[in-house]
Simulated assay, not measured.
Amino acid sequence: MKKSVVTFALAAGLALAACDSGNNQGTATEDRTLPAPRDGVVTDRFAHMALSCIHRQYPNKISHVLNSDADVGAPRELTPAFYGCFDWHSSVHGHWLLVRLMKLDPDSPFADIAEDALAESFTPENIKAEVAYYTAEGRKSFERPYGIAWFLQLVAELEESTHPVHQQWRETLRPLEEAIVTKMTDWLPKLAYPVRLGTHNQSAFAFGLMLDYARTVGDGAFEALLAERTLDFFEGDTSCPIGYEPSGEDFLSPCLMEADLMRRVIGEADFAVWLGRFLPRIPRNGKAGWLEPAIVKDATDGKLVHLDGVNLSRAWALEGIASALPEGDPRRTAILAAAAVHKDAGVKAVNDEHYAGSHWLASFATYLETKRGIM
């Protein structure tokens, strides 16, 4: 099989250029040989991209509170399990991507390499250090809620797997999982208002992933708290201004992510009625034109390339919304038509040409292609 060499940056100075440069890889490198993606298997391309970054340390953007000189350190020292892929949350969902594809496609030519790479990250020592970092003074809001939700999704993926190695990793991650659930359980009742942005702090997207986690692991108390907060925040919403979307740096739709969350907590008949109030202009003509895909004018810009992500996340939210409506609902055809054009635009944009997008878009594409939010 044709081989291609992927270079991983493992050591360099903290002052390296930011992600927008897309080319700086550090001064010391480790080469791993990855198989070429199989023809027609789009998820192989996504696995290739994740393996190209989960142990690539630089460029790196950290959100790091310093309490003293002792807190100064390289990313691989501060968070030794999740230091690659430019930032903590992208590293986490890059690891999730590999676990998901190992589980769904165990015969993939990437499976063994993915297992080796994940085993390098998922050690008791690394997770102990992650817990120490996460629970340290001044980090109450670290990666809350976006990165936290993706970590819990990673745990849910492992929980569902029957693979012995996955079960071992699931136990290895448990200390960080428990610290996160404890902190989220304390925070959720204090959140007076939802965050309706189209970026990392959005409440609806994170609540959806956390709900799926709680149901997968059987944490009824956490599930009940999330469902209660969801209804408190969103049950009475009407006429979401989807025509104002997307904002210039969105990677999540505020309106569609809210609807995709609400279909998780209310029954089919109630959801159909709620959706009519919330998005009253969804057409019944079966056409996709009511929601146009976003346009990216500079794929090297780490903020502007977010809009490739909004196309992918809109597509999976639309598919989720349609899945929760009755079969005969006249809106389903137009919803699925819009999902299809967004999926086409989004998946076409997922490539390794520019690190600004390649370090994270493959995870969004995998979530969509494998229907994670529905299955």
Rank of each mutant, 00 (worst) to 15 (best):
V99L: 11
A117W: 01
D112S: 14
R170W: 09
S121I: 04
L191G: 03
M184S: 03
M184R: 04
M102P: 11
K128G: 13
L191K: 04
A149T: 01
R139N: 10
M184Q: 08
G147C: 01
F110G: 06
E159N: 15
R170A: 00
K190S: 08
E171N: 03
A136F: 12
S108L: 07
M102V: 09
Q153G: 10
E130R: 09
L98G: 02
R144W: 04
L98D: 06
E159W: 06
K190T: 11
D186Y: 08
K183A: 08
K128H: 08
K183V: 02
P124D: 09
F110K: 09
G147W: 05
D116N: 14
P189M: 03
L97W: 07
Q153T: 08
P124V: 02
T185I: 05
I148L: 14
Q167H: 04
F142L: 13
W150A: 02
F122N: 10
E143G: 03
W150G: 00
P145N: 09
W169I: 01
H166K: 12
E157G: 14
F110W: 03
N126C: 09
M102R: 10
T123I: 08
A119I: 07
E177N: 04
A149S: 12
P189R: 01
V99T: 06
L101E: 05
I127N: 06
W187T: 08
K103R: 15
R100Q: 15
L101K: 08
W96L: 02
P164V: 00
A132Q: 15
Y134P: 08
R170C: 07
Y134H: 07
I127K: 07
K190M: 11
S121F: 04
P106C: 10
P145T: 05
S121D: 07
A129F: 04
A129D: 13
I148Y: 06
P164A: 02
V181W: 04
D116R: 15
V131G: 13
E143F: 03
K140Y: 14
W187P: 00
L176M: 06
E130H: 11
P109V: 02
D105N: 13
E115P: 11
S108P: 11
V155S: 12
A179C: 04
G138P: 11
P145M: 03
L158F: 03
S108H: 15
Y146M: 02
P164G: 01
E178I: 03
L98N: 05
Q168D: 09
Y134V: 01
I127C: 12
Y146D: 05
D116L: 14
G147D: 10
A149K: 00
P145I: 00
V99D: 08
L188T: 03
